[in-house]
């Protein structure tokens, strides 16, 4: 079977062996969501492209991903977010403490086979762009189902790296409200995306 049709763990194993083709394949699979996230956070195309390259180069150089601990997609998203927020922090001093989840996220990325929609099939991974697209539309659907107010705080925290108290100030609502909205939003999303994130 050609590398392009292999599941992520197999491709990553090839990457480990120094196979540039494997990097090429993974780029084909994940560069778009990575770039979109980078662009959403950094709000500048050139920087987003630069960060996209950095994320892949880092994956190549450090091989820091551990397939036993979760899917590559989630790992790459966490890396991207954390590094994008790092850049923002470097740019904007007053917001530099914003990154709340990135690091702990990396360390906690264990468990969940966030992949196959067939939750009962461990070892199935979102391989091709097609299944990534399916995943994306499920996420959109789920987001559309949670209250706008919950979505708002979740997105402010995730993309802008704002702390809960910063969100409190921006939206002029009590801290308790921010907390309960974001927690409820996350729990609801988790419920809606159960099939995607359930551990096998």
């Amino acid at each position: 079977m050609p590398l392009t049709e292999q599941p992520d763990p197999v491709v990553f194993a090839a990457l480990r062996q120094g196979d540039l083709k494997a990097l090429d394949v993974l780029y084909g699979r994940y560069s778009t969501p990575i770039y979109r996230l980078a662009l959403r956070i950094l709000k500048a195309e050139e920087e987003a492209a630069d960060l996209t390259q950095e994320v892949f180069l880092r994956l190549w150089r450090t091989l820091g991903y551990d397939p036993a601990r979760g899917t590559l997609l989630v790992y790459l998203m966490m890396m991207t977010r954390s590094q994008a927020l790092n850049r923002i922090r470097q740019h904007q001093n007053q917001r530099k403490l914003a990154e709340r989840w990135g690091r702990s996220a990396l360390s906690l990325a264990e468990g969940g086979d966030t992949s196959g929609h067939a939750s009962g099939h461990p070892g199935r991974f979102p391989l091709e762009a097609l299944s990534l697209d399916e995943t994306a539309s499920q996420v959109r659907l789920a987001l559309a189902q949670i209250p706008q107010a919950q979505r708002e705080v979740l997105e402010m925290a995730y993309y802008d790296g704002l702390s809960q108290s910063e969100i409190t100030q921006r939206l002029d609502i009590p801290l308790g409200t921010v907390k309960s909205r974001s927690r409820q939003g996350l729990l609801k999303l988790r419920q809606l995306l159960k099939d995607l994130v359930d551990s096998p």
Partner: peptide, 28 residues
């Protein structure tokens, strides 16, 4: 871990139609 994964699926909802520049792949 599942909550963490859920959170990190959020960006998949970002705008369709945006893609990295074509030259980036070769550059990488």
């Amino acid at each position: 871990a599942e909550l963490q994964a859920t959170l990190n699926l959020l960006p998949l909802s970002l705008a369709d139609g945006v893609a990295p520049p074509a030259a980036l792949q070769a550059q990488l």
